[in-house]
Design a protein around this nucleic acid. Sequence first.
DNA 1: TCTTGATCCTCCAGTGACTGGAGGATGTAT
DNA 2: ATACATCCTCCAGTCACTGGAGGATCAAGA
Lengths: 135, 135
Amino acid sequence: MAMLMIGELARRTGVKVNTIRFYEDIALMPKAARTDSGRRTYSEADVKRLKFIRNGRDLGFSTEELKSLIALSEHPDLDCGAAAAIARRHLLAVEARMSRLMLMRRELERVAANCDGGRMADCQVIGAIAEAPSH
Amino acid sequence: MAMLMIGELARRTGVKVNTIRFYEDIALMPKAARTDSGRRTYSEADVKRLKFIRNGRDLGFSTEELKSLIALSEHPDLDCGAAAAIARRHLLAVEARMSRLMLMRRELERVAANCDGGRMADCQVIGAIAEAPSH
DNA sequence: TCTTGATCCTCCAGTGACTGGAGGATGTAT
DNA sequence: ATACATCCTCCAGTCACTGGAGGATCAAGA
């Protein structure tokens, strides 16, 4: 399979070159193999992993959380009870986030609809989101 | 109405004292009124605003985005077309986030269920999330 | 073959959004 | 009057990047 250089990996994933190197430093990405002249090379698996990291970061997971999620999916031999527990813990966080996002969406929809072509009488964006469940 | 000190505001919102002062510095929170001895005082409106900020930050909005959302809800006299446009822009971001969170939730549910009391055969956490739509 | 331009390398300084602590003033309770 | 909590300002540190300097490497064209 064709190996890619760091620039191509960056283009395919939307993660900057410097950021990819940074991820290697903090071990979020594995140490890349190198060509004779020292350039990093990547595979399709790296593209997937990096896309996952990008999405995860964007959704507000920390690099440490992503490491544990990656570990979860990379060690099928891991103790199942432990894996399930980690998954459930992440699940709770995901669900809390979703319920707050739903509130925010509803309110933004209302604002966008109400405002359109009229006066903006009572924008309750803050009021609605302030009361949303925390974490 | 009773005014609160910064410590009480921190307790009620879950935002640290230092962070509240930091928000004032960057104008995410308005300059707080002061007592004669120089201590900051806050109202119920500040509690709401800060809860909103906390939720918003937690959901991954930047302080600049939150400033624009707050401005949106604080100026009902603002041009409605502009306000609706800002709201719709945020709406798109919120929807993209939700669809990725839904994918992550589905996969975590599957992992949690499949793993429980068996061997973890094929954890597809990364595979599933890697292909999710990006922002 | 030589050169030009793109890409790569390492190293380091800067940014955004906090977080924690030093050093000192103020408020309240005994 | 003495504690002790809470407040103040200022500043250094952390996390997760981001950008740039200074220099090597490579592929393509004159």
